[in-house]
Design a binder for these strands. Structure first.
Lengths: 139, 139
DNA sequence: ATACGATCTGTAGTAGCTACAGATGCAAGG
DNA sequence: CCTTGCATCTGTAGCTACTACAGATCGTAT
């Protein structure tokens, strides 16, 4: 006697709804092997189980946090070994955090440079365009 | 009597040195038509002039400021019309600035989420890994 | 039985380069 | 004049992380 409800697992569209990950992206994740090849129905449609659903949530959450696919792959390898060490995970996350901080820092530089340019230009009473002038600077 | 110094223009490697733009990238810019097709030597090597050098500086500076290629293309169209209006340039820059601000905001969210995770994990005296737990959250 | 939506595979496109391979060009030294 | 060796040439493929088809098949409700 099978549990009718989920005996056949989730089709890909259901996975997509539940996790918010695009169907094409789920298949992409399978192709690059961060999602396993799921079971198939007789006709060839994918049938996912709860472990796979959990894994897909993990991937989505990690992507939301800005981890690259390769970082996620590394995280999943750790998680897949049941004895993964928290230290490895911690280090990877710290490294990622550092790169996020770097990105913020460089965007802030852009922000101030652009702000200066916009303000200069806004004055309007100058001949030529200060923004264009700034862009032509060969510094 | 020609001016020997620059009579033949700059070869691509010289352009690269002067601007800091990779040779392959310069050729790429030509392919996507934000740089014009330069003159060629008898043998077929590119020979750039000072206008083109100036243009390449403009592109590099714009890229440094985070403008996309399409934005730069638009900027160049404006600049190429000698009567470009400062308003258009201003608007494009303001829009770009807004998108930079958005990126900063979303990176800051990542930063705080990641910081929380790292701090939690650093405590070390918890069973399992708080980071992994956080990543498995299906929120 | 049929209709209709879900899913299938495979390929190509996106941004903005970068990295070759394999063939030439060019300039200086002998 | 010839060689050596770096610079440059074209054309194509790769990178990240998806997304968007086309054209075919599956699955299920009526």
């Amino acid at each position: 006697m099978k549990n009718i409800t989920n005996a056949r697992g989730y089709p890909i569209g259901r996975m997509s709804q539940k996790t918010g990950v695009n169907i094409e992206t789920i298949r992409y994740y399978e192709r690059i092997a961060i999602m396993p090849k799921p079971d198939r129905t007789g006709g060839g449609n994918r049938q996912y189980n709860d472990d796979q659903l959990k894994r897909l949530f993990f991937i989505r959450r990690s992507r939301e946090l800005g981890f690259s696919i390769e970082e996620i792959r590394a995280l999943l390898v750790m998680v897949d070994r049941n004895d993964f060490s928290c230290v490895e995970v911690h280090d990877l996350t710290v490294a990622h955090l550092a790169s996020v901080k770097e990105k913020i820092a460089s965007l802030k530089k852009l922000e101030s440079a652009l702000t200066v340019m916009v303000v200069e230009c806004n004055r309007g009473d100058v001949p030529g365009c200060p923004i264009v002038d700034a862009l032509f600077e060969m510094a």
